[in-house]
Nucleic acid binder design. Structure first.
Lengths: 202, 202
DNA sequence: AAATTAGATATACAATATGTATAGTCAATT
DNA sequence: AATTGACTATACATATTGTATATCTAATTT
């Protein structure tokens, strides 16, 4: 009755391929639908050509699948350019660049909007996504500290950080994006962010 | 077999009382829960001491109940003070006051947050709530036009309108409200709104 | 007083979803 | 040849929205 076990490159490769197909199918469905309402594991499984049970084997739950979809988008989402932006000498230009990067990210895949909707019905998934956003808050805090004069009050700094964090969030992008191209949204957010840090610099 | 029909003040009063009890129970549950996830008509009905079918008789659907809850909150929500604010001679002070009114409104009842979550799973409810928000956009547009110089470009005006509309939205309030008292949120939003219209005035 | 009516109830049913449980299939590996 | 990993087939439990039908009760009309 002992399990000998084995690791098969052929099998794990096939499984990974299957996994990717499911993620891709889920992302496509999220992208095409205008709302998360119609999204179900059954539909995803059929679109991916597997059984619903396979989805559970791979992702554990609906939540697991959604997280995998988000991480898949994030991986190929251009967020790696943040390092270069943060290395820029002028903190205000760095801020502009970071805003631009996140605007592009939010605009990249319409599935991101559906995933944010999913936060409403699944608190644990919401927490998972919020954790991933905390990295952005750290970036914003670093930039704010670089801009702020030493005389600036702590409360004012925290206010600026949270304001910029909110301005660069997906909900903000989504609200500004209706009937407006991404680069214009980006410009609006950049201006608002600069206005938020300006009082700290003097 | 003819319906004679009759209108009874006693009956309709009793029905209205029942209706109010259901709305109140729903609002209370939405207020107490941290997420819309656990909200169900069965729970509401039991909390109100009626049958689930009674809820359907009164509101037609889950969506109908949610709309009734929102309208109930809006009715006693201090939004009537907007008229006085809009009548203020200085448009910037009027803007400050309008921001203050909406901050108070969003902060008034935690159920509002849950209702906004419900927009994710019910597109038609989302549309109903968005329609109610369009009134706010009109206010913002009026104030922006009052501030803007005649030389200000149309696109810049529209940008300012949408930015302020987003800044005064519930999602924005919710993002800034974590660990911060309402009046500080209000101040942050006021400052950001003033910064958004400032470029138009010169 | 008797018939009717509005509102609520009781009960059942249909349709979806998520999630769990068990046994079986098939090819890769030992 | 036996075992194992991934997937499948089928069934089941649970929760939720929404609909259908018959019944109950108190208010109202004739």
């Amino acid at each position: 009755m002992k399990k000998r076990g084995y690791v098969s490159s052929v099998r794990s490769a096939a499984a990974a391929e299957n996994r990717d197909r499911v993620i891709e199918a889920a992302a496509k469905l999220l992208r095409e639908d205008a709302s998360i309402a119609r999204f179900s594991l059954d539909t995803v499984a059929k679109a991916a050509g597997v059984t619903r049970l396979t989805v559970y084997n791979q992702f554990g739950s609906r939540r697991g699948l959604l997280e995998a979809v988000f991480d898949g988008i994030a991986r190929q989402g251009g967020l790696h350019e943040i390092a270069d932006a943060m290395a820029m000498p002028d903190p205000l230009m760095a801020l502009d660049r970071v805003v631009e990067i996140f605007c592009s990210f939010w605009a990249r895949d319409a599935a991101i909007g559906r995933l944010h909707e999913a936060m409403a019905t699944d608190p644990e998934f919401a927490e998972a996504l919020l954790e991933r956003n905390e990295r952005r808050r750290k970036l914003v805090r670093m930039l704010t500290e670089r801009v702020a004069a030493k005389t600036a009050a702590r409360r004012a700094r925290e206010g600026a950080v949270d304001m910029i964090f909110a301005l660069t969030s997906y909900p903000m992008f989504a609200m500004l994006n209706r009937g407006r191209p991404t680069n214009e949204v980006c410009h609006l957010v950049q201006t608002a962010c600069r206005a938020a840090v300006e009082p700290l610099s003097r």
